[in-house]
Structure formats: C-alpha cells, structure tokens
Design a protein around this nucleic acid. Structure first.
Lengths: 192, 192
DNA sequence: GCATACGGAATGAATGTTCATTCCGCAACG
DNA sequence: CGTTGCGGAATGAACATTCATTCCGTATGC
C-alpha cells in the first residue's frame, strides 16, 4: 500500500476512536507502519492529514451518490436510487461515513473541505426544488429538507454504532419508507 | 453568577467553537472570569468539566421533553407535544443542543453521562413501541425510528448553524409534518 | 557483471511549544 | 489573627514538528 494511503487509513481509524484532538501524530505513524517524520513528507502537518482525509471521503461519497443518475425517472424512483447508494456507501465504509459526520464542524477544516461539502448539499437541494415544482415533494426550504432526511440517516448509523453492531445490508430497506414519507407530498407517499 | 456555572457556560462556548480537544483549560478560566486554579476547586479536571456540562444539559433536555406528558392523548398529539418541546429546547439553547450532539460520541464521557443519554433514548423507544402496538406508528425497530426522527432534527439545526442563522421560532412548524410522516403508519399520516 | 557513487526517500531522536494541573501566597471574612 | 477561597505563575508531561542521519534503488564507471 502506498504510504500516503496507509497514513490516511490509520488516521481515519484513530480520529474516529480517539477524536482528532486527542490523536498524537506519532501514533498515526506507528499505526500506518511509517516513521513519524514520513507523515510530513506527504502532508503539510496534522491539519493537512484531516483535510486530505475529509476531502478524499467526501468526494467519494459525492461520486457514489451522483454518478449515473437518470434524471428522467419519477422523483420517488430517483430518490430511492440515491438513498440506496447513500446507504450502500455507509455500509461499505462505516468508519469513513462516521468520520465525515463527526468532523463536519471541525474548526481545522479548510475552505477546500468545506467547499466540497456545500457543493453536494446544494446539488441535492436543487434536485429537491425540481421535485417540489413538479409537485412530488412537499413545500419547504429544500436545503432544510435535505438536512432533515440526511440527518435521519446519520442518526440511524450512529445508533448502530452506539449499539456496537455493524450496519445491516438491508439498511436502505429499513429506512427508505420513512425517509421518503418525510419528503413526499401527500399524494406521493408510499403505502407499503 | 456562581463560579461553577460561569465555568460551565464558558466551557460550553469554547468547546463548541474550538472543540473539546483544542480548548485550553486556562482559556476557559479566563472566559469565565476566574483563575485557572479555581476550575480545579469545582471540578476534578478538564474531563470533569465536560462530563458535568454534558450531564447538566442532557438532563435539562430530558426534563424539557418528558415533564408533564399526558400519555392518554392520541399518539399524533403526544408526538407533537414532544416535538415542540424538543424544538423549543433547541431554539432556546442552541449551543447546548449542538454540544450534546457533537459530543455524543466523545471518548472522554464517563458512564454517568452515557447512562443519561441511553435512558432518554430508551424511554422514547418505549413510547414508540406502544404506538406501534396501537397501530399509529409503522413497523420497525423503535430505537432506529427514534434515531431517524431525532437525527433529522439534529440535521436541521446543524444546517441553520452552518448557514450562520439562528434557529427560527417556528422550527417545530417547519419540521413536524416530515417528522411525523416518517414515523406514522399510512392511515395516520398528516394531510396538511 | 561487479563495484562504487549518488540522490532522494524514510527515519526517529531531539527540540521547542503548549497544555493540564499544582501549589504557594494573598485577600476577604469571621 | 485564623480560616477559607481564590488567583495565576510555576511545573512537568505530552505533543507537533524538525532535521541530521540512515537506507535503498539506480546509475555510472571499470
């Protein structure tokens, strides 16, 4: 494994269990199987590591969600697709998903990291706004609706984590009905 | 203001903006208007401060939500009451609400702090389970349903915070329809 | 094909800084 | 005066970062 990847993987693990502030850089190095100084060959410092980590995964998440969306389908179907990808991503990369969440606010994140985050939010809000115009999603500030559904998924993954259980493969099935009904206008709600 | 309260208030502010790990104790002291040593007269140490802070506010939240619930009302009405109190609490104490969220996972929280948190979760899940038996809430693990609705509220408050805006007084009105529809069984959904 | 020399990547002990905590002297009250 | 509560400089540990050194793969000369 390339050293920079080894470093990022080790950092992900440790930042998640110890929190960023309480993780010593030398410990990251040890876990990554490199010397402490090596980290500074690949990153400008500890903050550089968090930001690289954040951007790497946020971009991966954005790609996983957006890539190959067929925008011509009905809203409920597109939403289902997005939701499944989101859940798939969280299940496949639970530590990374939790990391993105926990560090959303971090004062050490730079403009680049924040930018990626808001781009994704905005493009989701744009989609919702379309659907509102088409009458399939209920009224309300689209950004807040996005925040509310997405927050729900975050809450569920956190609950599993607190419980010490892995995310189940049918996470999407368990949560999609609620998620869609939170968004849908009355006539578009799911019956099942 | 009593010194211990001043210390907790200062810590709340700083932990929220700088994160726990990066907040120096002497800075908390300065902000609280006390000497650095004084903190150690009131708390066993920095961890003692976070835990006192967490417990203080989690208890306040629990009290705000549960106190004086009339369990004989229909589910939708009880839920509305709870949701309004929750939103009221978040609006009245935005920093504390955010703090409780951000530090839910903190490795520095002790058993006492975690205990309060899970008690509240469990009592909410119990309520939901009752409603499921009565047919007003859809099927599914009640703990996960709680996590999903509550996560939604957290997401919304976070969105406002990211935006730099205060939480609006009508937060509950903006979010309750979605929240209830996420939970409700088909026949109990809101039309409005 | 072998020996030698070179460059840059990697290392980890050393450095200076930052921080949680302590402790001693002062002040306020009785 | 004694006692109690407080302040903030002093302390020592832990940390992020640096840098003199080692190490290794490749090139060069024989």
């Amino acid at each position: 494994m390339p050293k920079d990847t080894a470093i990022l993987d080790a950092a992900l693990d440790l930042f998640e269990t110890l929190s960023y502030g309480s993780t010593p850089v030398p410990l990251v190095a040890e876990r990554a199987g490199v010397g402490a100084g090596t980290i500074y060959r690949y990153f400008p410092g500890k903050e550089g590591v968090v930001n690289a980590l954040y951007q790497r995964w946020k971009q991966a998440l954005a790609a996983a969600v957006v890539d190959g969306l067929d925008r011509s389908q009905p809203a409920a179907l597109i939403f289902e697709g997005i939701w499944r990808r989101l859940c798939g991503f969280a299940t496949a990369n639970p530590a990374a998903f939790a990391f993105l969440e926990t560090h959303h606010h971090g004062p050490y994140l730079d403009a680049g990291s924040r930018g990626i985050a808001t781009d994704l939010d905005r493009s989701m809000a744009g989609l919702l706004a379309e659907w509102q115009r088409a009458g399939s999603v209920r009224a309300g500030d689209p950004q807040l609706l996005v925040a509310q559904v997405y927050g729900g998924l975050v809450g569920v993954t956190r609950a599993y984590r607190d419980r010490g259980t892995e995310l189940p493969p049918d996470l999407a099935d368990q949560t999609i009905e609620g998620a869609w009904n939170l968004l849908a206008s009355p006539s578009n709600r799911r019956r099942s």
